[in-house]
Design a protein around this nucleic acid. Structure first.
Length: 578
RNA sequence: GCGCUCUUAGCUCAGCCGGAUAGAGCAACAGCCUUCUAAGCUGUGGGUCGGGCGUUCGAAUCGCCCAGAGCGCGCCA
């Protein structure tokens, strides 16, 4: 099916074509003045500028042609040259009926699907996920689902941080405390994490300890058998721990590769750079100098002076692997925006080495989660907050507003806990996704357990209410029928539904889940209003009841799909303690 | 020092390839449960869009200048 907006754009485009106007101005957008129109076209204003003609005259010419269309109720030219279009109810209703039977809810698949590799998550060995990891996982997963839904092939890779200096730091700390590595395989994630924390402190205070750590890192990377064996254990334990976290967040990764998997390719990249004569040795390190601009552009360090591979080299090598092995057309990195310079450098080197020709490399940078002081969030003791703890706090809040197990029929402990988790995760994720990714936000524990206003649970609640009505309809034998539009609130709701495709498309182009979050909230809001003014089960007649049932079911389907694209689940029922 | 990003209602933020009366949520205030889940709905108040200059018929949006904030700038990742 063709969405309402697309159909309208086709009509306008035809008129522009026959009138000899530039078609790039032939498009509509939902009206800024709903009191005057459903859609507006500002093309006449833009045309007037380039043609040096009167915008109202051009607008009138287009409007006159449009007025003949059977699907259009009224067209008018207002103000300096806005073309205001009001559609016939039958046309809007017809579109809703098509949308209701369309498994894709009016969202066309892309005509040229791409293979997109997504790099997000970015967990590290020996570090439990903390609030800093939340955004990458939540935003990344949402973008993954959006791009996939648009019809592309998406391959997500967690890109485990398993090969840098921290590995040497942990190993050296264990040797420092135990004398050797004989006990490594008995250590669990908590123990490994503790070693890392101590190593971090010691390396900061003692330059000699840091030196040892770097040395061990280099030896590990060069294949020291004892170190590799111990490292394998550290990695396996960490991956398992982190997998649990990502499962709870419902973030999906097709690949669990890490920096270490790029090691061999790193050697090849160094060789390619040498062969192409673009690398040089400076102060013992192998570097690539980048062309100077007015912006500070430090050189890229491929091999450090101690022989270890720098992380920029790892990223460059990983690009080549993704292009060669995965046939990536596009690689998207969902990483803290403070790393933008790093990615700019890496992308530039990839170009210089010609390892990713015609591949679109994109860094989607997101802002930090900040404390009340505007600085990246820290707990009272100065540490970072564990993601698990954060989720637990939100769940506790949600749980306290829920009935106790078995107070509601069919809701035992397991069912209540499932519901608690779904609502808590919705609160946390929506809080994160409702903001544009690039801007940071102030972390407030309260916000992660809020249900009122622009929140995830608000949208879940709207869905639950519709489910409830549909259950009642089912029990009473009422059936859904053709959608017809009479009331103003029905119109508003239908027009909002018609905008779903546009929201998904924009979110996909901009890699911006907040556009869908915004859309879903707005749709839920309009539905809630409709819910209050337009009775469904007690509608004035059977025809209206059948129509509203179908419209409500469509709203439910679109809301569920929108939440899915945000990585949020929609419970069948929302329960509340008395 | 150089560069990037930002400054919109009391608070948190949308809107930004120029367009009509600058929008939400929270907070405040006033209403709405004998009718489909009140985690809801309706209404009210609240703004020199950081400041200035410029381009334009028209600027929150584009350009320049200034002020303030955040972030980043070779061997951590």
């Amino acid at each position: 099916m063709l969405s309402l907006e697309k159909q309208l754009n086709e009509k306008i485009k035809n008129i522009f074509k026959t009138s000899g106007f530039d078609e790039k101005f032939a498009f509509v957008k939902p009206s800024d003045r709903p009191d005057l129109s459903d859609f507006q076209c500002n093309g006449a204003l833009a045309l007037a500028k380039s043609l040096k003609q009167n915008p109202r005259e051009i607008g009138q010419k287009i409007a006159d042609e449009l007025a003949d269309d059977n699907d259009i109720e009224t067209v008018s030219v207002d103000g300096p040259g806005f073309i205001n279009i009001k559609l016939k109810n039958e046309f809007v209703a017809q579109n809703m009926n098509e949308m209701a039977v369309d498994s894709r809810l009016g969202c066309a698949k892309t005509k040229n699907p791409k293979t997109v590799v997504m790099d997000f998550g970015g967990p590290n060995v020996a570090k439990a996920l903390h609030v800093g990891h939340l955004r990458s996982a939540v935003i990344g997963e949402s973008i993954r689902r959006i791009i996939d839904f648009l019809g592309n092939k998406v391959i997500s890779d967690v890109h485990f941080g398993d090969w840098g200096t921290p590995m040497g730091m942990i190993l050296s700390q264990i040797i420092f405390e135990d004398g050797d590595l004989s006990k490594v395989e008995t250590y669990d994630i908590e123990a490994i994490s503790a070693f890392y924390k101590k190593a971090n402190v010691r390396c900061k205070e003692d330059e000699k300890a840091a030196e040892t750590a770097r040395l061990i890192t280099a030896e590990l990377q060069n294949g020291n058998k004892e170190y590799v064996k111990a490292w394998k254990h550290l990695r396996a334990v960490s991956v398992n721990a982190v997998k649990e976290n990502y499962d709870e967040l419902d973030a999906h990764f097709d690949l669990w590769l890490g920096e270490s998997d790029a090691h061999e390719m790193c050697e090849k990249i160094v060789q390619i750079a040498k062969d192409k004569n673009i690398s040089e040795v400076d102060e013992g390190a192998t570097i690539i100098r980048l062309p100077e601009t007015n912006k500070p552009m430090p050189p890229v360090i491929l091999v450090k002076s101690d022989g270890g591979f720098g992380y920029q080299l790892t990223d460059i090598a990983t690009i080549k692997m993704r292009v060669d092995d995965l046939k990536a057309d596009e690689i998207i990195y969902v990483v803290d925006k403070r790393q933008s310079l790093h990615f700019e450098q890496v992308f530039q080197v990839a170009k210089m080495l010609s390892i990713a020709p015609d591949v679109n490399l994109k860094h989607v940078g997101f802002g930090t989660v900040n404390g009340a002081d505007g600085k990246p969030f820290k707990t009272r003791d100065g540490g970072v907050m564990n993601l698990k703890d954060l989720i637990e706090m939100s769940k506790n809040k949600v749980r306290s507003s829920m009935p106790k197990p078995d107070e509601v029929e069919g809701y035992g402990k397991a069912e209540i806990e499932k519901l608690v988790s779904e609502v808590a995760m919705a609160a946390i994720k929506f809080q994160d996704l409702k903001n544009t990714a690039a801007s940071g936000y102030i972390f407030d524990l309260e916000d992660f357990a809020k249900f009122d206003g622009k929140t995830g649970p608000y949208i879940q609640y709207a869905i639950a209410r519709i489910n409830s009505i549909l259950r009642k309809a089912d029990e009473s034998g009422a059936i859904q029928g053709k959608i017809i539009i009479f009331e103003n609130d029905e119109r508003t709701l239908a027009l909002k539904l018609a905008g779903f495709e546009n929201a998904v498309l924009r979110a996909g182009i901009d890699k911006e889940p907040s556009i869908i979050a915004d859309y879903a909230y707005s749709l839920a809001q309009i539905f809630s209003s409709f819910y209050n003014t337009c009775p469904i089960m007690s509608a004035e007649n059977e025809q209206v009841k059948a129509s509203r049932l179908k419209l409500a079911a469509l709203v439910r389907d679109v809301l569920k799909q929108a939440l899915y694209l945000l990585g949020i689940k929609a419970p069948e029922k929302m329960l509340k303690a008395n």
